[in-house]
Amino acid sequence: MQFDFNQTYFSLFGIEPRFALNTPELDRRYRELQAQWHPDRYASEDDSARRLSLQASTFVNEGWQTLKSPLARGRYLLRLNGVDTQEDTNTAMPMDFLMQQMEWREAIASARASRHLDQLERLNSELREEIAALEGLLGGQLDAAQWDAASTSVRKLRFLEKLDQEIGDAIEAVMF
């Protein structure tokens, strides 16, 4: 039994290294790979087989999670092309984008404080639309090998996903 830990997630799942994704195909391959490598398949095997299966199954899960999420997939494609998205170091964002972020934050905070579940759900769906639009843009930039622009989009998406999480937390705080 052998597993190639150096292959890319795209080659692991046997799909083209592009942003556009055939999700049902990814999921189908994912189940096939787990059916082959999951630790449950090796529960009665020796130590080294069990260790390999744990690592391979973990790698498959990581790959699936990376490819499934548009943000993680975009970041991963950039990395494969030798581009560092500098998410922790490059915080210079366009001024209008930052202003918009502040407005989002204020809207979430005020809806949370006044316990307006409807308002939070509305913000949530507005944000999801914005995220979808930005993901579309990122796909185009990646296809056109516009790495700098794609990097900026990834950084922006990271901001939006954080907002998404904040809304989720706020909804939970109000609901429960």
Partner: peptide, 18 residues
């Protein structure tokens, strides 16, 4: 049922738990 499969008594039906 899961113990039976994990012990290596594979029957005709086989399943995967995630």
């Amino acid at each position: 049922m899961q113990a039976n499969v994990l012990a290596g008594n594979k029957g005709d039906d086989d399943w995967l738990l995630l």
